[in-house]
Design a protein around this nucleic acid. Structure first.
Lengths: 182, 182
DNA sequence: TGGTACATGTAACATGTTACATGATTAG
DNA sequence: CTAATCATGTAACATGTTACATGTACCA
């Protein structure tokens, strides 16, 4: 009964299994769509966690379907472990921003190279913002009302991207470049 | 000559070694102060990377000083590897926000529990914002002018925390709670 | 002289990443 | 019939985390 020690990735898989039995493949797709935005996971991890959780009795393998598809069902123990995990105070963010490392060591870089990097980042973040905004506008009102908290996660992504782009734009001209060229 | 494949953590240590020879202990302190904000590392990692880089000839151990202190010096190969790394396009952020997982599965949580979690997070982020702001106001103008890019990293932290708190405050009352009690 | 901060190092394990091998099914 | 997509699984390795063992020097 000592509830199995879940990591966040495994717990998320259990979360999705509340909706219906799914195989690794479905779970990966689902996770990437629904939480991939702020929680990355790979195919390898999914199969590893599924195997471990099946071993621990949190989920049960059903009969193989088409294409060797291996569906898993939540067990009572799995539900309990998930509830346990979900009620914990969420841990601290892990935020690792390679660009900031580059900037921290910016004095070892020629100004124009740093400026080029910043320009490139601006493009990438603008694109991401645009894609988030599109996704946001595509959310059906019914889903929004049924899952307000889940929908709100996208809002934070948008707020982050806007803050990031705004920060880039406010950077002193001395590091953003454009000065030197003129 | 095939330049050693550096990870960002190891590269950062090389970055700090440009300033002066340092031992693991100093490097850990320095890194936590200067990049800890957006790049976490542990004592274990520092010693591991130092050992690997010494092995690869990127740094050289000097004579032990007081308290078994083991200083390392950059080699030419180390400088080259660092320059190589620094010029790369910085990779994508790793952002993992456990709170958003909790929210994504918020429908499995009693509303008051979710509201309590959000409240708690608000406190933590406010404190962090305050500490960042204090650090920002304590930066000597001379340092700011000499290292504008390094200083700007703190600005992004502040922008992020403000965006986060603002997002929390804009969350619909239905999930923030305060409704039910009234 | 005893506690605390300094300092290094290792062991064990958890998590994340990349690459590959294998086979099933479908669409053209 | 064959290329593409679906689907699972494993191996090898990189990185990150936690805990512990050891010893040094300072300072109250």
């Amino acid at each position: 009964m000592t509830t199995f020690k879940l990591n966040s990735t495994a717990a998320s898989l259990l979360g999705f299994l509340h909706e219906r039995p799914m195989a690794g493949w479905d779970l990966l797709e689902t996770a990437q769509q629904r939480i991939g935005n702020f929680w990355s996971l790979t195919q390898s991890q999914v199969y590893r966690e599924l195997a471990a959780m099946a071993e621990a009795g949190l989920i049960e393998a059903g009969e193989r379907g088409r294409r060797e598809r291996q569906p898993y069902t939540l067990t009572e123990a799995g539900r309990a472990a998930f509830q346990d995990w979900l009620r914990q105070e969420p841990g601290p963010e892990t935020i690792r921003i390679p660009l900031l490392l580059t900037m921290a060591f910016g004095s070892h870089l020629p100004p124009d190279r740093l400026a080029a990097i910043l320009e490139h980042q601006r493009t990438r973040h603008s694109e991401r913002l645009r894609s988030y905004e599109q996704r946001q506008s595509a959310i059906p009102p019914a889903y929004r009302e049924a899952n307000p908290a889940a929908v709100a996660t996208l809002d934070l992504g948008i707020a982050y991207e806007r803050a990031f782009i705004n920060w880039l734009d406010q950077l002193p001209a001395s590091i953003r470049g454009g000065d030197a060229a003129a």
